[in-house]
C-alpha cells in the first residue's frame, strides 16, 4: 500500500512543460530520493505535491485520499511536511518559536483564547514548548533554542527547518536539497539524521544533488529528466542504468 501516489501529473508554465505525464508511488517507511540534472523539475514536483503550484493535469493521492486540489495548509494537516531549497525560516522569531510554529497542528488555542490568556492557553503553551524542545533535541539543536534565527549560520538554519517540519509529526517529510551548502561533516550528520527520521517511522521524500548521500541512504531512487520519469529503482540499479549515465553526462 503506497503512502503517496502520483498519477499522470503534468505542469506547464506558459508553453513550457516542467513536468510531463509523471506517475510513481512512494511506499511507506522508505527514504525515497528524486534526482536529476538541474532544471529537471524536482522542486516543481515538490511544489505540486504541496499544491503551492496547481497541477495542469493529473492527480495526487496521499494515504488513499485525493489531495490534488487541497490548499497547502490542509495537506499539512493530513500529515505532509516539507523543508525548502531556499530557506524559509521565520527570521523574525527565535529558534524554539520557529519550531513551536511547527506544532501548530498539534495545538488549538485561537486568537480570542490567546488574547485573554485563558487557563487552557497557559497549559497548552507549556506542552507546545516541550514538544518543540523535543524536536530540537532530536536534530541536535537544543543549545540554540533561545537564539534569534537571524543570527544563526546556514548549516544550523537548514537543520532548524527540519526540526520545524518534524514538530508537526508528519507521516511524510519532503526535503528539498537538505545537503546543499553543507560541508562534509555536516553532510555526514545530515545522513544520520535522515536515517533517524526514517527509523522513527516517517517516510522521507528527498530531492538531492549529493549522489554519495542519495546512494548511501535511499531505498528507491527516481530519476527525472526534462520533467519526465527517466528511471526508477534501487540505488544500485540506477547507478548502472545507461540512460541515467547518459543524461548526467549530458548526451541527452
Amino acid at each position: 500500500m503506497p503512502l503517496l501516489e502520483v498519477k499522470g501529473l503534468e505542469k506547464s508554465f506558459g508553453g513550457l512543460k516542467a513536468i510531463t505525464d509523471l506517475s510513481f508511488s512512494v511506499p511507506e517507511g522508505q527514504i525515497f530520493s528524486i534526482i536529476g540534472p538541474n532544471g529537471a523539475g524536482k522542486t516543481t514536483l515538490f511544489n505540486l505535491l504541496t499544491n503551492i503550484y496547481k497541477p495542469t493535469k493529473g492527480s495526487i493521492f496521499f494515504n488513499k485520499k485525493d489531495i490534488t486540489k487541497l490548499p497547502p495548509f490542509k495537506i499539512a494537516a493530513l500529515g505532509i511536511s516539507r523543508t525548502f531549497q531556499n530557506l524559509q525560516v521565520f527570521m523574525n522569531m527565535n529558534v524554539v518559536e520557529n519550531v513551536m510554529v511547527g506544532c501548530h497542528l498539534r495545538s488549538k488555542s485561537g486568537l480570542f483564547a490567546s488574547a485573554f490568556r485563558l487557563p487552557s492557553v497557559i497549559a497548552e503553551e507549556k506542552r507546545v514548548r516541550d514538544m518543540a524542545l523535543e524536536a530540537l533535541e532530536f536534530c541536535g539543536l537544543k543549545d540554540y533554542s533561545s537564539q534569534p534565527a537571524s543570527a544563526l549560520p546556514y548549516g544550523i538554519l537548514k537543520k532548524l527547518e527540519i526540526a520545524r517540519a518534524l514538530a508537526s509529526k508528519p507521516r511524510l517529510l519532503l526535503m528539498d536539497e537538505p545537503a546543499a551548502g553543507l560541508n562534509d561533516t555536516e553532510t555526514m550528520e545530515l545522513c544520520r539524521l535522515i536515517e533517524a527520521i526514517r527509523d522513527s517511522g516517517i517516510t522521507v521524500l528527498l530531492v538531492e544533488h549529493n549522489m554519495g548521500l542519495v546512494m548511501e541512504i535511499s531505498q528507491t531512487v527516481l530519476v527525472l529528466n526534462y520533467g519526465r520519469l527517466l528511471a526508477k529503482g534501487s540505488p544500485r540499479d540506477i547507478q548502472k542504468n545507461p540512460e541515467v549515465i547518459a543524461a548526467y553526462l549530458g548526451e541527452g
Binding site: I52, F73, A76, S109, V121, E125, R164, A165
Partner: peptide, 24 residues
C-alpha cells in the same frame, strides 16, 4: 506569546512556510 501570535509572525516571516506548517 501564544499560538495565535506565532501564527501571525509566521505569516509575516514566510507565508508559504506558514501554510506548510498547517496555518490557514
Amino acid at each position: 506569546d501564544s499560538r495565535a501570535g506565532r501564527a501571525l509572525s509566521a505569516v509575516h516571516g514566510s507565508e508559504i512556510a506558514a501554510q506548510m506548517m498547517g496555518i490557514d
